[in-house]
């Protein structure tokens, strides 16, 4: 593996005496699909929250492309090339699908406030460019029929996809997907697997996903990390992990 994209070293956080994440270390290489699995409460989403600075780390370090991002302000994370989705969908309910995607592009400035109030040609071109990028994502994720629909009324599966699209709109290097397949039917999960492959191959984005759906993990992931009770059990390929005795005991069952 060449220089790792994301490095997590001895990361930990506690909530009132409960060690949600306990001395967790792992590395994610550029261009790979890395899955984190484990029973509920193992600390998987907490890892995401620590990396994206929703939680304040109690100890340890997170490095992205060699830069230490353990303490950067929360809204700066996206500028380091990290985008995420949320376990309980956090879409902008009052906006349309297109607006959600355009909001995903917020980190690309379009002009200062005065120019925006006067809607100068520069702003207009920036808006067109943003729309263009958003349309690429709409095309990739088959969202065209819903483009102008308010997000609030859409089916659950579509909303999950919109959230992935919004994260992609930020043009990240690292995409964190929190249980992307939860609540999706088998057909939607199959589509999701194809999209994750596309994201890796065509867009060159590294994906880290927290997932319970083992078939999706086995199909798409390059490497898997198993967590239990805040600690790492083991890391390896899906095949290695699936036959690991401790993993079977703690999570997969015989």
């Amino acid at each position: 593996m060449s220089a790792p994209l994301l490095t997590v070293e001895h990361l930990s956080v506690s909530f009132g005496g409960v060690k949600a994440v306990d001395d967790v270390s792992f590395q994610v290489g550029s261009g790979e699909i890395f899955a984190i699995i484990g029973p509920n409460g193992a600390g998987k989403t907490s890892i995401f929250n620590l990396v994206t600075r929703v939680f304040e780390a109690g100890g340890g370090r997170v490095t992205m492309r060699g830069k230490d991002i353990t303490r950067v302000p929360r809204n700066d994370i996206v500028r380091f090339g990290i985008a995420r989705t949320f376990q309980n969908i956090e879409l902008f309910e009052g906006a349309s699908v297109l607006d959600n995607l355009l909001l995903g592009r917020h980190r690309f400035p379009t002009g200062n406030l005065l120019q925006q109030i006067f809607y100068t040609p520069r702003v207009r071109h920036a808006e067109d460019a943003a729309r263009d990028r958003a349309e690429d994502i709409i095309a990739l994720l088959d969202l065209a029929p819903h483009r102008n629909s308010p997000v609030a009324g859409l089916p659950y599966g579509v909303r999950k996809v919109v959230e992935i699209g919004r994260a992609l709109a930020a043009e990240p290097e690292l995409l964190l997907l929190d249980e992307p397949a939860s609540g999706l039917n088998p057909e939607e999960t199959r589509d999701l697997a194809f999209w994750i492959e596309d994201i890796k191959k065509d867009m060159g984005i590294t994906v880290v996903m927290v997932e319970h759906d083992m078939s999706l993990v086995a199909e798409t992931a390059d490497r898997v990390m198993v967590m239990n009770m805040g600690r790492v059990l083991t890391t390896g390929t899906p095949q290695q992990v699936q036959s690991h005795p401790e993993v079977v005991a703690a999570y997969l069952g015989a």
Binding site: T52, V54, R74, N75, D76, I77, V78, R79, A83, R84, F86, E90, L91, F92, E93, G94, A95, L103, G104, H106, R107, R166, A170
Partner: peptide, 12 residues
Amino acid sequence: RDSEAAARSLGI
């Protein structure tokens, strides 16, 4: 207005 958590994650 709609989601501060998501807004922050997008750089707002």
